[in-house]
Computed example of a mutant assay.
Amino acid sequence: MNSLRRLLMVFDLFRPEQPVIDVEIICQELGFTPATAYRYLRELGDAGFLKRLPRGYALGPRIVTLEHQMTKYDPLLACSRDLVDKLVDDTGLDALVSEWHGDSVVNVLIQRGSDVGPVGGDRGRPIDLLHSATSRVVLAYLLPRQIRRIYDAHAHPTEPQQQGLAWKPFSKSLLAIRKQGYCMSESELHPGRSGVAAPIFDEKQRVLGSMTLVGRSERFRAFQPGYLCDLVTGAASELTARIALQ
Rank of each mutant, 00 (worst) to 15 (best):
G56I: 13
A198S: 00
S135F: 02
R81M: 09
P160A: 00
V196L: 06
F170Y: 11
G45V: 12
A222Y: 03
H68R: 15
A236H: 04
L96N: 10
L66D: 12
V232W: 00
A166N: 10
A197Y: 13
D90F: 13
P169F: 00
R15M: 10
M184D: 13
H131L: 11
V207R: 01
E186A: 14
L213V: 10
R52K: 14
L174Y: 00
H101D: 12
R219K: 14
V108M: 07
D152K: 13
M70P: 05
P19T: 04
E29S: 09
G181K: 01
I150H: 06
L44Y: 09
C79D: 09
T134M: 11
L87R: 08
P160C: 00
R15K: 12
D122T: 06
H156W: 11
G209H: 00
L66W: 15
S171N: 11
S135C: 08
L44C: 11
T33K: 14
I243R: 02
V196M: 08
T134N: 15
S210N: 01
S217K: 12
L77Q: 08
F201V: 08
D90R: 13
L129E: 05
L7P: 09
D12N: 15
L59S: 07
D94C: 04
R15Q: 09
A166S: 09
K72Y: 15
L139H: 02
R55Y: 05
H101A: 14
G192Q: 03
V214R: 11
S132H: 10
L228Y: 04
R145W: 14
I26V: 03
L175N: 06
D82V: 04
